[in-house]
Structure formats: structure tokens, C-alpha cells
Design a protein around this nucleic acid. Sequence first.
RNA 1: GGGCGGUUAGCUCAGCUGGUUAGAGCGCCUGCCUUACAAGCAGGAGGCCGCAGGUUCGAGUCCUGCACUGCCCACCA
Length: 928
Amino acid sequence: MPHELPKAYEPGAIETRWAEYWIREKLFHVDTPAPGENRPVFTLLLPPPNVTGRLHMGHMLNQTQMDILVRWHRMRGFTTLWLPGTDHAGIATQMMVDRQLRSEGKSRLEMGREKFIERVWEWKRHYGGAILDQMKRLGASVDWGREYFTMDENLSRAVREVFVRLYEQGLIYRGKYIVNWCADCGTAISDLEVKHEDVAGKLYEIRYPVVEDGQAGKNARPTQFITVATTRPETMLGDTAVAVNPQDERYTHLHGKKVLLPLMNREIPIITDELAQPEFGTGAVKVTPAHDANDFEAGRRHNLPQIEVIDEHNKMNANAGAYAGLDRFAARERVVADLAAQGFLVGTKDYTVALGKCDRSGTIVEPRLSEQWFVKIKPLADKAIAAVETGEITITPENYRQVYLNWMYNIHDWCVSRQLWWGHRIPAWTCNGCKEVTVSREEPKACTKCGGAKLEQVTDVLDTWFSSGLLPFTTLGWPEKTRDQAVFYPTTLLITAYEILFFWVARMIMFGCHFMEGHEQDAAPKKASGWGDKKNDSVPFREVYIHSLVRDAERQKMSKTKGNVVDPLEVIERFGTDATRFTLAAMAAPGTDIAFNESRTEGYRAFANKIWNAARFMFMNVDRIEPGLRPGVRQECPPHTGVAGFKTEALEDRWILSRFNRVTGEVNEALKTYRFHEAANRIYDFFWGEFCDWYIELIKPRLMETAGAETNKTACTNLVRLFEASLRLLHPVMPFITEEIWQAVYDSKPPLKSIALATFPQADEKQVDLAAETEMAVLQDLIVSVRNLRAELKVEPKVKVPIQVFAHEPEIRQMIEHNRGAVERLASVESMKFVETSLAKLAGARSTARFDVHVVYEKKIDVASESAKLKKELEGLDRRIQVAEGQLGNQGFLAKAPQKVVEGLRKQLEETKVLREKTVAKLKEISS
RNA sequence: GGGCGGUUAGCUCAGCUGGUUAGAGCGCCUGCCUUACAAGCAGGAGGCCGCAGGUUCGAGUCCUGCACUGCCCACCA
């Protein structure tokens, strides 16, 4: 008994079954190719999801696109490696476990570092695989045998190696600088982790009394003031200067003088510095080196003291005098009130301030002076700039190239230390004695400076992106020189969301270009699409494709707080993975965001259902006509790139084969340039609109017993062959349903373990048949015309009508004659008669340039509405003729337009004229 | 303050390098249970392609300005 498809298409069961099968059979496992093996290579790194993550639509879009390309390459014979893994996600994971502990009434601090980290590992073992399990439901054809975790021992070793090397190269330094401090997370964060938000705030103008020469300072009555403006009055407690611009003549007389800092009664100097811009405010600015990055720089230029007044919990500290212990915002209110009371507040203006908030906790970030580790970025950035400027790495869509470059041009040193416990601990040790820091691959036995044996490892860990930035080579065995590296590095492509262009992509490029300098990829990797013959093999990938953002149906960004997050698994549950994948692919026009619309997914489930039913139709016939065909096909199934063993007996055969090849060409072309939507739509239109709507309908008679055994057999074989090839064409987008039907085609005994290993169709020029396409178009036109007429004449659906056809070209007439059966069946025609003169003027007739067709049916014509309609038609035709004649009479057009366009227009004009004549005749007839 | 994108049918969107009559899905209207499929079939209505100029033989497509809208980047108090 052959493999049966159930009557109803139920994606759930099919999809989980095949997802499991693919993994169980290790279908996507890639062995390291031996030297000399010459298949082209396609390598792709999965952007590692956070271990704490849950699958969202962005992931699904990302993975759908990757999987489409991966399957497509694999089917085209590339050695295709798609490398999966997860990211330890420092802050996110630590926070999650923290929260868990708190709910148990425990605390991280009581527990201690070691116990805590153990606990995180335990958490990871339990829940860390969740997101990858979800991925499996998507059908992602990754090599599960190579799965990694960024905290794996080998990857951690590589991280230490990188850190030490950078340090030795002078590219890592440590120091006390202003960093973005998140009190909630209790750690420094990088510029990228700060999101600015415009908020209505105030600009406070405060006057500082100038200390006059010869006066005894504090007790003297001030005679003049200098007014500064600030949005953060509480920081004035830590002011150590007031700056004016050296060019600003308003303040020349104050150069070298001092002011008395209100509330603190501290004398601070007036300095001249570019920091103060004459145009802004009063032109004088307070300088707080410990709480503002600009002021910090100015402070260094002028050797100013750094007075910290806010601590790591955002509370005022002892240096804030009377304000100590207050929260920074409470302090602000108090400071402002006191300044006003003492007559120092000149005014308050409404002012929009760009508040920096921590990306993760939402807390307002405090610029804070603290000891951190930094990567000196310029030398790395220079290489990363060159790689993109020279085109050694291409970025698609192209506008992101400039975005990337602009960011790189203006890059700042990268603060890589984090005051967390979970992550890669910085491989540096502080000597208990002399406080010297030793950076080393292994724990040092003695201090490099004083020789002391008591050393303690620095408690900070590295920014998570530090380790993920290394993945393109560390996952391939670096720092060892491995065969994997030789083959798979540089990876071919990186597909990711715009959000992490700087976080991740930029860092990978910097690290890759730096650490893989001099690397040469083994064998000549064949290009998926034109990245040319660029020599630089240090780059982490040759191409970057930035996909769009998935929004909700109202174009709103999905976010948990808004509660508009669409859970992909829920959508999958209802419509199936294939339909959901298809939706994402079909909506993924490069550069435009996707407003995820469920009704689209519903439509694509209908498409899957259509495929399903077409398959059922096929099997129904195969099993009746040629029960041995299914295994038979298996036997004669060599790897082929198109439709093998297809016999072109009839017009529809030539036509569908031609269309298949054309569509195949278009699909391949579209995938080459990441035009997923185009690939998806081409297949959709072909399968539904051509294969199902026309081809299947047209061959039905040939499948009927009355047609005879030979005809039956050919039709049946053609159907199977074409279907099988279409499944391969569709497989990258809809892997599950295609696998299910493909396996059934071979009666569960396929020539390969999976359609995923079969060959992707390639267009064969020789099978493109223009004549067949033209003839078919006329035939379809004829059938549709009759259907139209029937509707117009309100012919009862069940009634078959006689028609008359006039075709002045003998070839066309002959072609229609040949396909008489098709016309009769598909247009509910009782009989078709050819006539020798035009039928154009008859009521109940329709004309095209190629033929007139008349439906013979008694029906009173509504003369008024009919002639109105004809007049409107005529107007349109006249307009077209006028435009065309105008163009063709234009010397400029004739001289400059391409031949093809001119000729096309001429032909169109001729046809329009024929049609016009027919319409005129008809109008005349009706009106008379 | 800089930069980028969007504006096409009631809704969601295609329309690549300018070229013959601007497309699709959903929705809507009419009619069909035509033995693969009602998650279907057949037919239909619906568009000054945001506005104003310009370049061109020819503009939804290129340029300029404007309007509305979204996003990103930024240490001007």
C-alpha cells in the first residue's frame, strides 16, 4: 500500500515529525572536508541567541532567511555549514538568576561569587536550551553537532588569549575615566547600551560670586557674579572650576580670577577652555570633572581636582556636605531650593534634555568616574573601515554601509569591563603588596613587579559582546590553526538585525581583521553572489545582510511593555511553520520593515493546503494508473537540476515546462540578491496560478481512462516529474510540506534521505519555449473571454453553450482547434465552431487582436449600458492609439529609445487598431 | 544638531538598473458543494502612485522643494 496523504492538511504533526527526523539522522552535520576536497563552501554563523531568550518574530525572520539560503546552497552542492550556539548574556542572565534567588529569599551577595556562578550554570543546564529547542520547531538546518556556548572552556580560553594579546599589543588599558554607570545593574555599561530619550527638563541658571582681588573671600560682599547654566544643578556640589571661552571678550576681565562655589563655600578657579561656547547660554559653564565626560576632559587639561559627589547607588556622598545621603534627584530639588533662597538662582527655563537610560534596566545612567578596562579602538577600527571601504565585506542593503562607516569613523574607546560575576573574568591579577596588575593567560605565581606571591584576580568580567565578537574564528578552533578554520573562515555571510550592527557586527569585523590578519582560506570558495575575488581573508565574513524589523500589524514595534508581541510559536501552532516561514519570506523586501499580519499567514496556509491537495490529486491518479510508478521514479532519479523525463506531448506540457524553467531562473536570481519576497511570490504564482489552475486542469482528460493507457501514463509521469521538481524549488521556503510530499512521491523509499539533500532546480534555456507561452496565452485568453461572456449573459452555470470563433491567423486557428477539448471543458462550452468572418460586431461577442469569440445564447442585451460600456472602451483605445502614435511620430523617441521598446509599441499600436475597428463595428451594430 | 527611510486599491504591501495598458494577498460584491482542494472554483468593483516644480522622446521609478510620518546616531552645559 503506497504512502497515503491524509485528506486534511495538518501541519503540526508533519512538522514535528520531520524536524525530529532531520536531527536524528544528523542530516545537516558537516564533517571537516579533507585537504584537496574542492566543493565550494558556504559558512554561516547563527547570531547566538541569549540563553535567557525566548523565540520572537525577529529570531524567526532571521532564521527563516538564513535557513532559506542555507538549504538553497546545500541543494546546490555547497559544503554548507550553519553553526549554532548560545550566548551567556552577562547582565541578562545574572539578573534572571538574581531574581530567582530573591524569590527564594536568598541573595547573591550572601551566597558569594563561586556559589552564585555554580547556580547560574545550574540554571543554564536546566533552561539554557529552551530557545534552541524552539529553533528546532522552525526547521533550522543547523549542524547541531557543532553547537557551542560562549562560556565553553575552549571559547573562554580563546577569550583570555585575545585579551592578553591585545594587552601585550598596547591595545588594552586600564584607568579611571568617566563611564556610563547603571546603579540598578551595578556595573559600567558601554555607550551602545545607553539609549537616549528626549525628556522635558529644566535649564537652571546659577550665579557664582566672583572673588575680588584683595578681598578676604568668604566673608566679602560680592560685587560681581558669573552666571552658568546647567541641567543638573546637583552636580554643582562637585564643581571644581568655571570655564569661559578664551575668545569670549565678555569675560576677559575675569581670566585668572576665582569664584566662590555657592552652598559649598569653596573657591574654584575661572579657567579658559574651548569647553565653553560663547553662543550657548551665558557663555560660562560649570566644570564637574567627576560627573561629566566633557568636564572630565577639561579637568584633565587644567589639572583640576575630581570631586565625586554621587556614589554607585546614585546617592549623594560625604563630599556633598549637607546633602549627603540624599538620592540624586532629591538632592537636585534641595540644591535648587537652597540656591533660590540664597539668591544664587537667576532663572529656570524649560529645556529638553536627552536622558541616557540603561538599555536593560531603564535606569537613568550616571556618568561616573571609575576604574575600568578599555580597548583602544582606533587601530582596530582602521582595519574594519578598510575592509568595508574596499568592498572586501559588502553590506546589503547598501545604505547600511554608510551607517556602519560613519559609526566607525567616530568610534570611541570601548569600555569592556563589567562589575558582574557572570561572564569571562578578566585575566588580570592585582598584587596585594605593590598593587601592580599582571595580565596573564594563566594565574601568575608571582607579581611581575615586586615578586610578591599574594595575588588576587580582578573581579570584573568582560562585556558579553567582547566574546561574541570573536565567534567567527573561535568557534573554528582558534587560536589553534585548524583545518576547520582553513576551510570555513572567512564565513560567507552574516544575516542579522540592524539593532546589533554596532554591538556585534562591527566588533566581529574589528576582531576578525585584527586577529586573522594573514589568514588564507583553503581552496577557492565559490561565490554565492558577487563578492568578487577579494583577497583579504582576515575578514570574519564576506557579506552582511541586514534584515528588516518585524512590527505588529499596526506597524508598532513589538515590545513586552506594550503587550503587542506576537509569539511565533503561537502563530505556528495555528497555521504551521511552513506558512509562517512563507509569510516572513514573502514580506521580506530588503530595507522595509515587516508589519506582521496574520491574515497573510492565513493566506499562505491556504497555499500549503493547495499544495497538499494537488499532491493528493497526483497520488490518486498515480496509484490508479501506474501503481509501480512511485518506486519506478526512484530508480530513474539521478541527481538532476531540472525536470527529468518529462515528455512534451501537448501544448500544456511545453508551456508548463517553459514556465517552470523561467520561474526557476527567477527564483535563483532572487535568492542571489536576498530578494526573498520575490522568490516566494514567484513560486506561489507559479504553483497556484499556473500549475494548479491551468496545468492540472488541462491534463485531467489525459488522466481519464478513456484517454488510453499510453496517454494516461505520459500525463501521469509528467505530473509527477513536474511536481517533484517544484517541491525542490519550494523546499528552502517550505521545508516540511515539501519533505512530506517528496517522501510520498517515492513511497517512503526515496533515493536520498531527504529532499534537503536533493538538487535545487536550475533553469535550462533549452526548455524555455516562447511559442508555447504565446500560444498558451491566447488559449487562456479565449477561455477567459468565454467565461466573461457567460457571466455577462447570465448563462446558468450548468448550461453549456455553443460558441463561434473567428481567428484570421491560420496558426492560431489551428492551435485553438487542437485544444478544442480544453476550451469546451474549461469554459463550459457545448460545441465550438470556426467561422470565416469577424464576429466582432455581434452582441455576446468579445474580441482580441487574435480572435473573436461569440457565445451563442439568447439574451436581451441592455443596449444603453452595453453601448455605454463600449464607448468607454473605445475612449480608452483611442487614448492608447493617440499616445502610441504620438510616441512613434516623435523623432527623439525613435532615435533614442531601444529597438525593443519601439517595436513593442508598434506591435501594440497595430493590435490596438485592430481592436478599435472591431469595437467600432460592434458599437455601430448595437446602436442601429 | 546630524543622518536614513516611508507616503501606490478599503487594509497590508510588491513594483530591481526610467520603457508598451501600475500588480498581489486580505477584505468587499455576484455566482458556483464543476469527484484534488469551500483553507476551494469562476467572475467583478476599487488607484489624479503624498503635493508642487524640474530633467527626459518617455517619470510610480531620477533631481529639487514642501507636507506628513517612522527610525537611527550625537559628550553642547
